[in-house]
Simulated assay, not measured.
Amino acid sequence: MELYFLGTNAGVPTLQRNVTSIALRMLEERRSLWLFDCGEGTQHQILKSPLKLSKLDKIFITHMHGDHIFGLPGLLSSRGAQGVTSPVTIYGPPGIKTFVETTLHISQSRVPYNMEIIEHTGGVLFEDSSFQVESAKLDHRAESYGYRIVEKDLPGSLDLKRLEAFGLKPGPLYGKLKRGESVELEDGQWIHASDVLLTPKKGRVVTILGDTRPCEGVELLAKDADLLVHEATFMEDLSDLAHEYYHSTAKQAAEAAKRNGVQALFLTHFSSRYKDIEHLQPLLKEAQEVFEHTRLAEDFGLYPIHRRA
């Protein structure tokens, strides 16, 4: 699992940063790509990146402000123009279905693949044998949501010494034990997976928030996350302005990470008043004074999501 930031600016793009879009690349886990928000110009950012629209199968929209959705019709249209025929599912707040269908219809855009649009107001949105995605409402001027992506625990590795003690050699039975099945040896003895599997590998938790002020939804989604992506539109000296415009400061993001036992924090959605990476250093310092494991998200930055030891 890797995070790839396609845009980290708030409101409008600048020469240094595009507006919001984040990709979660899961090539090893499910050979797919999930996109979180799709601000204007996202498809141009993808062209400059190692990401492939052919791998995209899910899009999660946090809220209906233009800097988070204006790139969606063009991206969906271009995906079809590239000859991609695999289906895509879009999750978003009420209104996302009307927006997508209306813009594609009026522009006579052809989408030659199945597209499912699911409007939601929070809760568990998706679950399979490997992942669960949960959403909760945040506190913003528009109806805004965050997403919590939970990777389910994986079986532990096989204990080769225990297997040797049972006289079992590499072969098909190894695979059955790895899948949690029990196997019978030639002498009639049964070996259960629990006898030869090491501690399960803890699944990773990634939380990606939409625009928000500090609120209960942040606490719910961020709890014990391995990685939290939190907006930091302003520094703490502009906390009154942040509150007025329903945004957060870098310090507030760091406090949320520390309070909820997060392993790593990425700040994003920076105001245009902070023109480049140099001007963002005070935000980083402010956050790191509260929560050491904080980083600034950068456009075209690729960040692995590590498992806990």
Score class of each variant (00 low, 15 high):
Ile149Ser: 00
Tyr113Asn: 05
Ala193Trp: 07
Val205Thr: 12
His192Cys: 04
Glu186Cys: 06
Ile118Phe: 00
Lys169Pro: 03
Glu143His: 14
Val205Leu: 07
Ser194Trp: 08
Leu198Phe: 05
Glu151Lys: 00
Leu138Gln: 08
Asp187Lys: 12
Arg141Gly: 14
Pro200Gln: 10
Gly167Met: 11
Ser144Phe: 06
Gly210Asp: 13
Asp195Gln: 03
Ser194Ala: 09
Gly156Tyr: 04
Tyr147Cys: 01
Ala142Cys: 14
Thr199Ser: 08
Leu209Phe: 05
Glu116Ser: 04
Gly210Trp: 13
Asp153Asn: 15
Asp211Ala: 15
Leu209Ile: 12
Leu197Asn: 10
Arg141Ile: 15
Ala142Arg: 00
Trp190Lys: 12
Pro155Lys: 03
Arg110Asn: 14
Glu164His: 15
Ser129Thr: 10
Ser157Ile: 01
Asn114Pro: 01
Gly203Met: 02
Arg141Ser: 14
Val150Leu: 08
Val150Arg: 14
Pro172Val: 15
Phe131His: 06
Tyr145Thr: 08
Gly203Thr: 01
Leu163Ala: 02
Leu163Gly: 03
Val133Tyr: 00
Phe166Gly: 05
Asn114Thr: 15
Ser130Lys: 15
Ile118Gln: 07
Gln189Ala: 09
Asn114Asp: 15
Gln189Ile: 13
Gln189Leu: 09
Ser144Arg: 11
Lys178Trp: 05
Val111Phe: 09
Ser130His: 12
Leu177Gly: 08
Asp195Ile: 02
Tyr147Asn: 04
Leu158Ala: 02
Leu185Gly: 08
Asn114Ala: 09
Met115Glu: 03
Gly146Phe: 08
Leu160Gly: 06
Val124Thr: 14
Gly167Ile: 02
Leu168Met: 13
Val206Ser: 05
Lys202Asn: 11
Arg148Lys: 02
Ala193Thr: 01
Val205His: 05
Val205Lys: 08
Ala142Asp: 15
Ser194Met: 08
Arg141Phe: 15
Gly122Pro: 14
